[in-house]
Structure formats: structure tokens, C-alpha cells
């Protein structure tokens, strides 16, 4: 929404595409709050979550967003993400719920020994669905965008899940105009994606325009790194397990996407400010999920994970 200072000329289209994307996201969030019983916002602490949270605050101002935040903590999150998460919860005054699979962690599941698909299912997907069930949430906001991945491009803004949280791509409701049908059966839940129509560049442009607070990991800094299996990993804490011959080297890096630190690749970069990152985006032209081991483990992996209940 433009501020009073940016009031448009009367004849031109007064709204730019970020205004329209923001207005659409606000509209979606308000529909969910008006038509569902117990919504929650999945907060992954990444840039998309940051934008989603910022828009939620705008949508319900002066009230606080009328739903809690839910973070699925794998136990291998970057320390900076946890700090940022707690800071944002305090700043917004929203309730923060943290879900973690204690049983799996106690049983020794970890990103070094456990095969990635199994690790992801246990620490993220099953933790998420268990948390949704335990709290009885009937709608959950997620920050996914359609431009991220093929499977996402096919998904509706309101994505219905059966009792086992699985996504059935063959059985989706048509979405016409901006009329969302939020009616569901008992036991069904909805995943809602207010940023469906945003691109990665839109997210960065919006972060810059609105000065949305981000985890420092998105900005380049000298960090202890090593190359492993095609990923440039950052050694975030002392639990990192080195293979023989490996050792951490300082490099200037930043992240385009964030996840569990032993599974998320950084990119070499000197871009330490938003304008520098935006400038770099038009030259460094690789797709953003290239940095995620989680999405490379098998072909059509996103579709498979979604069928299991992943976001």
C-alpha cells in the first residue's frame, strides 16, 4: 500500500505490481481469518516467511495478526535463524510455537548419518503434520511461491489436504476471480499460500522497499565454509562432522535460501547490502533451489514430499 507521500497521479495506474501482489496477499490472509476456525502461520524464518509475516502485520493492523506462528525446528537450524525468530516473535507480540521431533532426535536421526529423504520426512514433514494435528489447526499459511518449482506451479492458493495431510493434485478446486472456497469437511485442513504469484525478484524488491527485517545469513560475510557434494556448506556450530581431509576455510558467502545448515548450500558473494544483492541477481543466474540438498535427492522430489504432507 503506498504511503501518503507516494500518492499517485490521478490518471496513471496508481498501483505498481508490488502493491498489487501485496493487496492480493492481504486479501487472501483476511479471507482465511474470516472463513476458517483456527489458522496458523508456518514461519520458517526465511525471506519468504519474513515477507509473509510483514504482510500479515499490515493486513490486520492495528490488531495483531489473529493467529500464532509455528516454527518446525529440526535441531540443525542456523543459530542466527533461531535468534532472529525469537526477536521477531517478541517484536510482533505474536505467540510462537516451536515443534521438534524429540523422539527421532533421541533415536539418533541427524543430517550426517540419516539419508536425506528419511531425515526430511522425520524432522520436518512428520513434525509439521503432528504439530498441526496436536493443535487442531484447520488452516496453515505457507510462504511457497509458484515460480520456485514445477510442483508448486500447479498448486492452488487454497490447497486442501485430507486427514493424512496429503496433497492430491488430481482433485483440486477451480479458483476463479479472487473468490476462494474455504469450506472443508471435518478432518480436512487447508494450506494457504498468499505469496503464490510472487517471484524471487519480487520478494527481494519488496524486502528492499518495505525494509523487511531478514536473517543476516542472506547478506554476504566471511564465514567458515567447505565444499561437499557440490554444496558450499557453512560450519555453523561445533556439531559439524568433518570427513577425513575436510577443513573449514573462510569465504565470503551468502544464502539465497535457508534450511538445516548441514544441508543448505551458500553462494560465494560479496553482496552485503540489499542493493548489492539485487544487482547480483541479474548477473548470477542460477535457480535458487540449486542450493538445497533436500530438493535434489530424487527427481520429482517436491511432488513426492507434498504427497506426504510437506509444504
Amino acid at each position: 500500500m503506498p504511503t501518503a507521500a507516494r500518492l499517485p497521479a490521478p490518471d496513471a495506474d496508481p498501483l505498481d505490481h508490488l502493491d498489487r501482489l501485496e493487496a492480493e496477499a492481504i486479501h487472501i490472509m483476511r479471507e482465511v481469518v474470516a472463513e476458517t476456525e483456527k489458522p496458523v502461520m508456518l514461519y520458517s524464518v526465511g525471506k519468504d516467511s519474513a515477507v509473509m509475516l510483514h504482510i500479515a502485520r499490515k493486513a490486520f493492523y492495528p490488531a495483531r495478526p489473529p493467529f500464532p506462528l509455528l516454527h518446525i525446528a529440526s535441531g540443525w537450524d542456523f543459530a542466527a535463524m533461531l535468534a532472529h525468530r525469537d526477536r521477531m516473535a517478541a517484536e510482533t507480540g505474536m505467540e510462537l510455537l516451536v515443534a521438534h521431533n524429540d523422539a527421532a532426535a533421541a533415536a539418533g536421526v541427524n543430517p550426517f548419518d540419516t539419508p536425506t529423504p528419511v531425515y526430511t520426512r522425520l524432522m520436518l514433514t512428520e513434525t509439521l503434520t503432528a504439530a498441526l494435528d496436536a493443535h487442531g489447526f484447520d488452516a496453515a499459511f505457507g510462504g511457497a511461491r509458484r515460480d520456485e518449482e514445477k510442483a508448486r506451479a500447479k498448486e492452488r492458493v487454497f490447497s486442501f489436504r485430507g486427514a493424512n495431510h496429503a496433497w492430491d493434485p488430481k482433485n483440486q478446486r477451480p479458483e476463479l476471480w479472487n473468490l476462494y472456497n474455504a469450506r472443508k469437511r471435518r478432518g480436512e485442513t487447508i494450506r494457504v499460500f498468499p505469496l503464490s504469484n510472487w517471484t524471487e525478484l519480487d520478494v527481494w524488491a519488496y524486502v528492499a522497499r518495505e525494509q523487511v527485517p531478514l536473517v543476516p545469513l542472506y547478506f554476504a560475510a566471511e564465514r567458515p565454509t567447505l565444499w561437499r557434494d557440490g554444496l558450499l556448506l557453512v560450519v555453523d556450530d561445533e556439531r559439524f562432522r568433518f570427513r577425513p581431509g575436510e577443513r573449514a576455510e573462510p569465504r565470503w558467502v551468502r544464502f539465497r535460501t535457508l534450511g538445516c545448515y548441514p544441508l543448505t548450500g551458500a553462494v560465494e558473494s560479496r553482496a552485503a547490502t540489499l542493493p548489492a544483492i539485487l544487482a547480483e541477481m541479474r548477473t548470477a543466474r542460477v535457480s535458487e533451489r540449486a542450493g538445497r540438498a533436500v530438493d535434489q535427492d530424487e527427481s520429482a522430489s517436491m511432488e513426492k514430499k507434498k504427497a506426504e504432507g510437506y509444504f
Binding site: M1, T3, A4, P8, L15, D19, H27, Y61, P62
Partner: peptide
């Protein structure tokens, strides 16, 4: 016309407002 960035002097078609 209430927003988080301060009250607006005008809201137009296409904007989400309060």
C-alpha cells in the same frame, strides 16, 4: 483510512485497506 504505515489520504481500487 488506517494502515501500518500511517493513515492514508486516499485509497483506490486494487488496494487492501481498513
Amino acid at each position: 483510512i488506517v494502515t501500518m504505515d500511517g493513515d492514508l489520504a486516499e485509497a483506490v481500487a486494487g488496494q487492501s485497506g481498513t
